[in-house]
Design a protein around this nucleic acid. Structure first.
Lengths: 239, 239
DNA sequence: TCAAAAGTGTTCACTCTACACCCATGG
DNA sequence: CCATGGGTGTAGAGTGAACACTTTTGA
């Protein structure tokens, strides 16, 4: 089972033939209100491929790893280059390295990220579009599988950490926070019990401000910055 | 920030100059009884480096990724080549890719594994030795950090999954299982409560056999194979 | 018969869940 | 004043920690 040695002309400028190349991709979620159902839903940006493998299909934003940059730096850079986004949360997801996942041998280090809706530039970028995470088209390479895993991790992690933070503005009501959890977990949560859990988590700071609307005003909360740092695993040296 | 084009002569046989290379390493734990303290402890095999970067220091078993093998296959192969071990549990840990973690640019996909003491070949392998996971010497590259992260993951995962299985023989007493948990978590567990939790987990099958010893014989248990499969995440296509 | 591990029972504190209920606001 | 979401109270089920207690064996 050896790799073909035909020196095909590839558009990958400095790629040595016959070598394994390292790519970096990012699954980046935001949350938005579906105007039709009026429900919050997870969305992610995809980039339309303009070159040969899977040309025309949508793919995760990403690019090649530079020799002089770390994996996380590469994820940030390629994400910004393809989508213009600079997420507030970025974490390594998994390294995908099946031999047949691309015509050439590519190992992809995939990151996943969260971004607040207000951090998304208004001006769309050429060949980039946002999709409902629950109903994606067929994507290039193994990217459907990758998004599925990212969703699994997001749902998992929301259960024991405060990552919902990455999807909300600085101040938010408990109902807004609950809506984030509901759309990630895909089920309704009891407002009364959610409130108690959130208040007892020790990570929320009530403010003196209220969100006024059609009904009784709701208190605005902030996340406790101090808790933020303690929560990360042993690998997080960033920030 | 462009790539340097100097063609340096490197000892890495088929390495294209100036490219990022992909390595695979494995942190593989077993459990053994420390003859001095009579306590169970986690141990892992290390390989003494015989070449230039960090020659003489101990390092994790591993090697280069082959162009025609998957990441997991490479982890299994390099582990077998350097230590002769074939673990019963193998899972991807993390991809390490800091620019300065090696003189050359190397991205390491690190796996972690568990192996039962009875699966370890008696005959030691040249340049390989087992170390107490709690008191390691200074290792080559960033391998101390990697082992630390693997320990963190192991402790984490033992809380919500049944991986302790990978460290025990087919049949075991609850006291043996408890000792595994105690050595992983680093603290004593109440035998009575541990028994109830284990029995109520639905993953243990009591046998009719008993382990006889100095005192009252203890019932032997097996793990339920059916539960095994359901427990894995969405990525596990193996087996 | 005694030490020690195997195994059982009970209590307390805490958490999750369901759901009844009161409060405050805009219309 | 009333519909609606904000916010509180409370009772039941379930779980984990602590620990007293009984059972069974080898020495």
């Amino acid at each position: 089972m050896t790799q073909t040695t035909a020196a095909t002309a590839t558009p990958l400028a400095s790629a040595p033939p016959d070598a394994t190349r390292v790519a970096v991709s990012t699954v980046i979620f935001t949350i938005r209100r579906d105007p039709r159902t009026d429900r919050m839903e997870l969305a992610l940006p995809l980039v339309r491929r303009t070159r040969d493998p899977h040309e025309g299909l949508w793919a995760l934003p990403g690019g090649w790893l530079d020799v002089a940059e770390s994996l996380e730096a590469a994820a940030s850079r390629t994400l910004a280059e393809t989508t213009g986004l600079e997420p507030s949360y970025l974490e390594q997801l998994y390294a995908f390295g099946a031999v047949d996942r691309s015509p050439a041998r590519v190992v992809s280090i995939v990151y996943w990220a969260l971004i607040r809706a207000d951090e998304i530039p208004d001006a769309g970028i050429e060949n980039t579009a946002w999709f409902d995470a629950a109903s994606l088209p067929r994507l290039a390479f193994d990217h459907n599988e990758i998004v599925g895993y990212a969703l699994w991790r997001l749902r998992n992690k929301v259960g024991y950490s405060r990552i919902a933070h990455g999807l909300l503005a600085d101040e938010f009501t408990l109902a807004e926070l609950r809506e984030v959890y509901e759309s990630i977990l895909g089920r309704r949560l009891d407002p009364a019990n959610f409130r108690r859990q959130a208040e007892n988590s020790g990570t929320l700071i009530p403010t003196d401000r209220f969100r006024t609307g059609a009904h009784r005003p709701a208190r605005l909360y902030r996340y406790d910055q101090d808790v933020e740092l303690a929560e990360r695993g042993p690998l997080s040296t960033r920030h």
